[in-house]
Design a protein around this nucleic acid. Sequence first.
DNA 1: CTGATAGGTTTCTGTTGGAAACCATGTATC
DNA 2: GATACATGGTTTCCAACAGAAACCTATCAG
Lengths: 121, 121
Amino acid sequence: MDQPYDIYQERCPTRMVLDRLADKWALLILDRLRDGPVRFNHLRRDIAGISQKVLSQTLKKLERDGLISRQVFPTVPVTVEYALTGLGRTLTDTVAALAHWAEANMDAVLAAQKAYDSIGR
Amino acid sequence: MDQPYDIYQERCPTRMVLDRLADKWALLILDRLRDGPVRFNHLRRDIAGISQKVLSQTLKKLERDGLISRQVFPTVPVTVEYALTGLGRTLTDTVAALAHWAEANMDAVLAAQKAYDSIGR
DNA sequence: CTGATAGGTTTCTGTTGGAAACCATGTATC
DNA sequence: GATACATGGTTTCCAACAGAAACCTATCAG
């Protein structure tokens, strides 16, 4: 049962999908939505350092890819909630694994960088 | 046992690590090295679409982070082999999971894009 | 001396990223 | 009525980065 797709091929559509996933902000947003819907400005505050433009763009891309949904509430001021879709939820474990790896192995990476920089000079 | 790091904080070092991992080419390289050492030009040919410059840069960053090792053989012409380090090997399952998700769920993503584009117009 | 191979670096240019300003809407404040 | 604040964005500007293509160094084959 071979997959009909090969991610190593340039024109394979899986490349586009990987490209979307291989984005720091997209990963952080997906991870942040794990526990339920979150509003725009709440995301902006939680994910320190993201700009409004990039948050807006990234949310749009994720929505287009069917990974998150956008719901507008006619409150005042208007409220917009973003949530994972069923498809998006199938990704969260993998995304969380990446984030967890980063947290768990950060010391090793920092040590490696230090060693590399002191030798390579 | 709380982690001392919070990936949502802007100046947290885990952000740097996530940043490195959130790179299409880095993920493809790490995945490609799963089965053993590979030479520079072999990588270039296998990972269709990558340029020499980007391959060279990405390999350097991964080496600096301690995820891959670089070994030069004084053959003629010189041969350079890249391989996963122990640290890099702890990542491969997660990376493979991402690539596998992309291959498995690509149809759903493409369908979502089509639906989004036809409505949003 | 032309070409091929290996592993890069350099140059140029178009796309992207982030910072900051701006905008529309409505509500509360003075 | 002017001022300020909140929401959820868009626009503008500039610096950084990505990719394509050319170039480089070295060695060997013909």
